[in-house]
Design a protein around this nucleic acid. Structure first.
Lengths: 190, 190
DNA sequence: GTCTATATGTAGATAGAC
DNA sequence: GTCTATCTACATATAGAC
């Protein structure tokens, strides 16, 4: 794979990533991706066999991106609580997008849960990444049920994004984030 | 409108309701609804002008159905806390469907938030119904910020459905419901 | 009111020139 | 590797016979 080809492939993945988020997977057509990149439709099949393959590449790309974000949270502090706070700040960092389109991961999972099992499984990858990372942090806080806490925290954040986007409510994000962060700070380090 | 026509119309709405939930709005075709009802595709346009009109009818139907469920919760008790517990029991009553397809309302809102503003607005109707009803209950409990509590409770439940469907996790529903109900019982009646 | 046939557009995917 | 032209299927929607 030469540098030109790799670059075009990445252009497609990046555009698809954005479009899958803003319009949904099924509502995004090859024409949309073509318009966004300037790359002709038929050309996509040089890089990907099917649309599902593009989805796979987008999820891989997201795993990479969110993995880097988690590493950034780790490097910010060795205190697990501070790391959790860093993670929770996603809600305010991306609030403009959340109000419009919800969570990119959550809405993709919700959409593809209604499809065949393999697509559902693929879409879950980023959630799994986050869940494992959060479990590590709660474990470092000596929480007995660290994985439960991880699920609780993700559920809280997902609930906020669903309601905030349904009602276009920015203030709800702010209030909920404050309460979430109070909860994080209340987690024991025994 | 005669009884035969009203009945066929209702058949279409009921089938569309189920299909919009199990497959999503955009992924449900007239062919799907035709297959489910036995009513020919072209016939739909006698009852509805567009697919969006079917969506409108489905949302109206859901507002009706969930309105009746709220009334049932009211009739079960005059204690607002018991009414809230009744509402929260939706999570266990529908857990089989939730694990497979998430919340019918939440996933529809998430899907249509990515569409034009008018569809997004329509899909929000059931959420608004619930929000107002929950606010009434928290007001009856003398909560200062009753609407905030209503949003918090809905966000909690939505978060549970998103995570439960993403991971196919029934146990998470049970544990979260127990914690939600403890929270409900802790709400002050000063 | 009910149904068939069909119009019109666009989806994902392919073939083959360059 | 890149691009155009095109295939096949199916989407919503319409026309018009019965």
């Amino acid at each position: 794979m030469g540098s030109k080809g790799e670059s075009n492939r990445q252009l497609i993945v990046n555009a698809a990533d954005q479009l899958f988020y803003r319009r949904g997977y099924h509502q995004t057509s090859f024409r949309d991706i073509s318009d966004a990149t300037g790359i002709p439709r038929g050309n996509f099949y040089y890089y990907f066999k099917t649309k599902d393959d593009i989805l796979n590449a987008v999820v891989e790309s997201r795993v990479q991106d969110y993995g880097e974000m988690l590493q950034a949270c780790e490097q910010e502090s060795s205190d697990p609580r501070k790391r959790l706070l860093c993670f929770s700040n996603m809600l305010s960092n991306f609030e403009d997008n959340i109000v419009l389109n919800g969570c990119p991961i959550g809405t993709l999972c919700s959409e593809l849960a209604k499809d065949e099992a393999d697509l559902k499984e693929v879409s879950r990858a980023v959630f799994t990444l986050m869940r494992n990372w959060l479990t590590e942090q709660f474990t470092a806080l000596n929480c007995a049920d660290a994985d439960d806490k991880a699920m609780d925290m993700m559920a809280r954040m997902q609930g906020v994004t669903v309601m905030a986007s349904a009602f276009g409510d920015r203030k709800f994000i702010h209030r909920s984030l404050a309460e979430l962060q109070a909860w994080i700070n209340s987690q024991t380090l025994s």
